[in-house]
Design a protein around this nucleic acid. Structure first.
Lengths: 354, 354
DNA sequence: GCGGTTTGAGCAAAGCTTTTCTCAAGTCAA
DNA sequence: TTGACTTGAGAAAAGCTTTGCTCAAACCGC
């Protein structure tokens, strides 16, 4: 970067050794002001719409900026105002099925407010997380959104000083922090009440690992609702396994063997549900006539490809991201310091399986 | 933001109306210098490792920075150096199955070079794309990586001046641009040669829409290789449809009806392959004994859940992202202006289906 | 025609760091 | 002891924009 030669080109003089002038100088506010015949201060006010001036003057500045293709230097602005109009989005798992929609929802809400998203993937590594946080601090981000793959509470970010932070999908263990989560109990309620409404009474619950809060929470609510209705789960208990189709298939076999007269499965996710559906199909069980199935997640690839397409619960992840972003903006503007947990309701998506 | 009161707190004086001092002033290089008893210039040199000074002095500055929790203001640095240490990642589809691994690969390579990623999702909307580009320009990004969901060439970005740009996965239509793409022909070659090596000779090709370059390219290469081996495709032609399991199931039925003695399917993606596998399974056809199946994409959710697990082609999307990032860095440093197309080879993943 | 407003625009400081120059003090050899 | 270097550190400019303050000119009513 030869500042000298680019300076001469700025003046409009022909640069003889133009080869060296690889990076042509961007036009600055000074250039715009000069072309419009005003001072930089006036030019700044004209472009930002602030200050008072003859409409004609403002027009001249705008024209000049246009003609020169002027684009304000955000670094200079940020340096002056102290705001970077940037938020960091820290995702602890490598941007998976859950964090992506959250991320998009957040970007959507932030983009509307002229805020950009700096992406930080920690891959679950504490060192990497700390590294990214340092960078975010150096870049003076206005706020941070933390998201992850699990609904289990995570330890809060450390060493970020007073930077506003919101936890999305994976809440913080600190109740003082702002967290936005999915209403797992509500989702289970939608599913179970739907099945009860269809007249099903011998319902089995097959879900993921017991050490996942998502599995536990949904199972607990399911059993609770059944008990409220004077029912017991088909097999007397919830079935914990992993989140895979293979587990769904195995569990379906086991449940059918134990209680052949059961009439519905509520599954902890769509993969398990699809595994169940495959097994029922192979056994010639009619879905939903003989046995109904409700999944969870509304993961289209699974839910739509299953035979029959799955009735399932949608967590509205985009909405979680959007609300997290809005909460963050509120925190940044410090208008409303509403801390604590926000819960986003689920939606029941009815297809053919129940 | 009351600059006045925060200034007084900077001086270490107790601030009486501390309530107003919501955002405590960050410590600046000035503060570090003062504490270390040196000038800002010296402090800067000490922290950056440049300049010459007594080791003792440097140590004093480092200690002071540590004690004050100093974190340099990147905006000020960028303003001075003209580099933002940021690249924009423009993705034209809403961060899908293909762009995510590319994105992660790129972030990985860039992060190592202290460069952060600014995420821009255009959702396929030209207006939104232009909007994001303007923002990237204002933020003075050092470069841009463009990625998308399709392998079809896309029109180059416009209005970004001389900002270094690399197209990943979705190449630019302009051959002067730097693009990094997957070797579709190579992927098809791996698949077909694997099947030929297994002694299969009556191979059917079922793939996605004809207007997708990925489908056309793989099909063309497949037919070419079969012809080279003195063979014709089982049904005499490639079968174009969509990328779904449903299409895979339908196509399998049709192919089996037309040529019951065929012995292998090469499918344009894993979803189609899974559809094919499901149909074969239901018809009691043994896979791979009777008929072998090779998929494409190595999408674990599909490939591993299929019965049997799918042999498939992995495009190494992370590598595409990494190479794109490296190419971008080279372009930024202007050391090697190697323009043109880079092709990333695929890998054959052998599982049970072939 | 005169004092008091309003209006339009410029000046200059501030925001934080890097880097080039300059300069004083110390070192070494003759 | 003196002159030529070397070393360590400071002063100041540059990078670009925003904004509070100042000031001159035009305008108003009387």
């Amino acid at each position: 970067m030869d500042r000298g030669s680019s300076l001469s080109s700025r003046n409009g003089l022909p640069v003889s050794d133009s080869v060296r002038d690889v990076a042509p100088a961007r036009t600055r506010l000074t250039d715009v002001a000069a072309r419009a015949g005003v001072s930089v201060g006036t030019a700044s006010k004209a472009l930002s719409g602030t200050g008072r001036m003859r409409p004609e003057t403002r027009e001249r500045v705008l024209d000049a900026a246009d003609a020169l293709g002027f684009s304000p230097n955000r670094h200079a602005q940020s340096l002056h105002t102290g705001r970077s109009w940037t938020v960091g989005l820290v995702t602890t798992d490598g941007i998976g099925r859950f964090s992506t929609p959250v991320l998009l929802g957040a970007e959507d809400a932030l983009g509307a407010g002229k805020i950009s998203v700096l992406l930080c993937d920690t891959r679950g590594d504490a060192i990497r997380e700390q590294h990214h946080l340092r960078i975010l601090i150096e870049r003076r981000v206005d706020g941070i959104i933390v998201t992850g793959r699990r609904t289990d509470p995570r330890h809060p970010l450390t060493g970020i000083g007073l930077i506003p932070t919101v936890y999305a999908f994976s809440p913080s263990t600190d109740p003082q922090d702002v967290s936005v989560v999915s209403d797992d109990a509500g989702g289970a309620t939608l599913a179970v009440e739907h099945l009860l409404g269809l007249g099903r009474t011998r319902i089995a619950h097959v879900t993921g690992p017991r050490h996942h809060a998502a599995a536990r929470d949904r199972a607990a609510r399911t059993l609770e609702l059944l008990a409220d209705a004077g029912l017991a789960p088909a097999t007397g208990r919830a079935h914990y396994g992993d989140w895979s189709e293979a587990w769904g298939r195995r569990a379906a076999e086991a449940v059918l063997r134990a209680t052949p007269d059961m009439d519905a499965f509520f599954c902890g996710n769509d993969q398990i549900a699809r595994g169940v559906a495959d097994t029922l199909r192979e056994r010639g069980v009619r879905v939903p006539d003989d046995i109904a199935i409700v999944g969870y997640d509304n993961w289209d690839t699974m839910a739509l490809a299953a035979r029959p397409p799955l009735t399932t619960i949608d967590m509205d992840l985009g909405e979680i991201g959007r609300i997290a972003a809005l909460r963050l903006l509120a925190q940044i503007d410090a208008t409303t310091p509403e801390a604590g947990l926000a819960t986003v309701p689920c939606r029941l998506i009815v297809r053919e399986s129940a």
